[in-house]
């Protein structure tokens, strides 16, 4: 008779890493839907492209490393990375941007460092930063919200632009991005930043068409979608509350202080919360456990540092948005933060 020998504990709550990853992927759905509604098919195409590329890259590296492909390929981590890359790229960026970014994220940032659990940097953000620095032109091809476009673009048009640079009718990306009044539209953050350098106040910038009624046409809803997904993750305890709360609080406090000091040159706190990649960063990127801090205290510091960096880069840096840079800088700091925020063990240092 075979006796089953196992190490204690014999019980397990039956959770799995892959289930956790799947949950996070599902939680991006509201944000992605908002993005699709306001900005069209671009990002969905990029997401699909990124997922395929990431899976191929992951498969290749895993087989080279003689790993168990069946379990590791579909553990959801590569797919999640790909989804995040697809979401964060400009909708009209050419196809090879996505492919290059996904390959870089999976092969270099993740697998070359040892695969899941060993990467010091968030693969999606590292890939984004690499693309932004290497291909600045393609990486700023932000598509204005559909409602502001002079042309009607549909799925086929977007697909064609991504793969050939032109719509079937022959319009170029630049033409698509042009407002009815003849100027190229930028993102809300970009608009504010440019206007301040041109001597306009923030209040004047808020009159801009891309900003619309609140903080940016489309962008505000996209951020609200990611906030919703994030709250769902919090409810399901898939992510710890500390990082997003401390990040958002930190960003709020920084922007509030600046707003109090100089309201003319500083955007409002809610503008910072609901434009750019703030909510995506708070709930989906900074909460990446692998590249983040582990203890509660450490996560609070990690999130606060990220908030501060996002604000500083948005305000004083050369790039309009800063989440990717802030995340990478915080990833670098995470081991140090962990080192100094170890909890007091029971019965020690009373």
């Amino acid at each position: 008779m075979a006796f089953w020998i196992a190490s204690s504990p014999h019980h397990h709550q039956q959770s799995e890493t892959s289930a956790l990853m799947r949950l996070v992927i599902y939680a991006t759905i509201p944000g992605v839907l908002a993005q699709w509604y306001f900005f069209g098919w671009g990002n969905l195409i990029h997401i699909a492209l990124a997922v395929v590329t990431a899976l191929v890259a992951e498969f290749t590296v895993l087989s080279l490393r003689h790993k168990k492909i069946s379990t590791q390929l579909f553990d959801g981590s590569a797919i999640l990375t790909a989804v995040l890359i697809g979401i964060s790229l400009p909708a009209l960026a050419p196809w090879w941007i996505t492919v290059t970014g996904s390959l870089f994220a999976i092969i270099v940032v993740k697998q070359l460092y040892g695969g899941l659990g060993h990467n010091p940097f968030n693969p999606a953000m590292a890939a984004y930063v690499m693309l932004l620095i290497s291909f600045p032109v393609q990486m700023t091809l932000w598509q204005p919200p559909l409602s502001l476009l002079a042309l009607d673009i549909h799925f086929v048009d977007t697909l064609s632009v991504i793969f050939s640079g032109y719509t079937p009718q022959g319009y170029s990306v630049e033409q698509i991005r042009t407002h009815i009044d003849g100027y190229t539209m930028a993102t809300p953050l970009d608009t504010v930043k440019t206007n301040i350098t041109m001597g306009l106040t923030v209040v004047e910038s808020m009159q801009s068409a891309t900003i619309g009624e609140h903080f940016g046409v489309g962008w505000e809803w996209m951020n609200a979608g990611f906030l919703l997904g994030g709250l769902y993750l919090l409810k399901r305890k898939a992510i710890h509350w500390t990082t997003p709360v401390s990040f958002l609080t930190s960003l709020f406090v920084c922007s509030f202080i600046a707003f109090v000091i100089s309201p003319d040159s500083s955007a409002s706190t809610m503008f910072h919360w609901f434009t750019g990649a703030t909510m995506l960063g708070a709930f989906f990127i900074l909460t990446d456990p692998v590249s983040g801090a582990t203890s509660v205290k450490g996560r609070l510091i990690f999130g606060a540092l990220a908030g501060l960096l996002v604000y500083l880069i948005r305000k004083f840096g050369g790039y309009p948005d800063a989440v990717a840079f802030a995340v990478l800088l915080c990833n670098m700091a995470a081991p140090l933060i962990d080192q100094y925020t170890r909890p007091r063990t029971y019965g020690h240092k009373l």
Partner: peptide, 15 residues
Amino acid sequence: SPFSSTSNNEVECIR
């Protein structure tokens, strides 16, 4: 039990 010699589902720690 996930921790027996016959059913080892251990994957990498994701911290």
